[in-house]
């Protein structure tokens, strides 16, 4: 017990006083808002310290964390904090994320009570996802750190990926501000790659909407970084064995092959290289549908020439050179289907 200084508030008192301060922030005039801002910051720091301990103090006792979490659920404060994130000051926003992420990972045996709680309050997730909207760039990155922590839990990832809001990511990853677009892309990628079965099911069920209507647009983006990142992610998705059905469908569509062949000869070397890793799947497919085979045959000698001179300076990348040699061999040996 410190000799001087205020006695510590209990978790219930802290949550109550933070909730009052947030409400005051939401409604108050200028004078009141200033005071409310101060109270919000102070209470956020106390809660954060209670959860994490500070460097010189012991880690917090389990019962304190349990009590605090319970108060947070009962008071609906997590949602309130996220809804008012743009009103909270710079350091306070970061504290909200720290508190959220800590409470999220709380476990009792094999149960994750906060995850269960958020499942009953999916507005929390949707509000966080809306944090990437153009209107408030100052909360995008804070929302992003919370979203990516949520995406680690399958139950939460499932809610997000199956929501209408998910398709807004195709817009978020392409915004002009590089830092926000990058952050949105890492969240997008996490959602699509973390839980393999969930993602495979989702991609199969929403193939047309996902690939034909939306992903195509990213691959054709005017933004170099969007194009490069989405092409790379496409390669990863198609080569993941969980996504076999999706891959089979993707590589049977001639439009996709044409796109990849065009990307192979884009001026950007990195895009050429990533396109190569998608293109190879079309060629390696032992059961090429006729339209795919026709395109490859029509360009047979051009492709052989092109690939022979493709990234010849990557002499140290053995795997790449093996794959390239294999592709050249495959293309050379291509024969038209025998009409039965």
């Amino acid at each position: 017990m410190p000799l001087f200084g205020k006695s510590q508030k209990t978790p219930a008192e802290l949550v109550k006083s933070l909730k009052e301060a947030i409400n005051a922030l939401e409604t108050g005039g200028d004078r009141k808002a200033e005071k409310a801002q101060e109270d919000v910051s102070k209470n956020l720091v106390s809660i954060k310290n209670m959860l994490y301990g500070s460097t010189d103090s012991e880690p917090p006792a389990d019962y304190v964390v349990a009590q605090l979490s319970q108060e947070l659920y009962n008071s609906n404060l997590l949602l309130l904090l996220i809804q008012n994130l743009q009103r909270i000051d710079f350091e306070g926003k970061k504290h909200v994320a720290l508190i959220f992420n800590n409470v999220l990972r709380r476990q009792i045996g094999t149960r994750s009570p906060t995850v269960e709680y958020i499942c009953t309050k999916p507005e929390i997730l949707f509000t966080l996802m809306a944090g990437y909207e153009d209107a408030h760039p100052e909360i995008a990155l804070n929302s992003g750190t919370m979203l990516r922590e949520c995406a680690r839990y399958e139950a939460l990832a499932k809610i997000m990926i199956h929501s209408e809001e998910f398709f807004k990511f195709f817009r978020y990853v392409e915004v002009s501000t590089f830092d926000i677009a990058s952050d949105a892309f890492s969240t997008f990628k996490e959602l699509l790659t973390r839980h393999k079965l969930l993602c495979a099911e989702f991609l199969e069920a929403n193939y047309d909407k996902f690939f034909t209507q939306h992903y195509q647009h990213l691959l054709n983006s005017e933004n170099y970084v969007t194009r490069r990142q989405s092409l790379k992610l496409l390669g990863e998705l198609l080569l993941d064995r969980h996504n076999f059905t999706v891959m089979t469908r993707y590589i049977s569509e001639p439009e996709n092959l044409k796109l990849m062949m065009n990307m192979l000869k884009e001026k950007s070397r990195n895009i050429q290289f990533e396109a190569f890793h998608v293109f190879k799947v079309f060629v390696a497919n032992p059961n090429k549908p006729k339209p795919i085979l026709d395109i490859l045959l029509r360009n047979q000698s051009k492709l052989v020439d092109f690939l022979t001179n493709f990234h010849t300076d990557r002499s140290e990348d053995e795997q790449f050179n093996d794959e390239k040699a294999y592709l050249i061999k495959q293309i050379k040996e291509l024969k038209p289907l025998q009409e039965a």
Binding site: K267, R298, K302
Partner: peptide, 12 residues
């Protein structure tokens, strides 16, 4: 420098 790679055309 950057615009020298577009001499190729695929036949679709």
């Amino acid at each position: 420098n950057l615009n020298d790679n577009n001499t190729w055309d695929w036949e679709f």
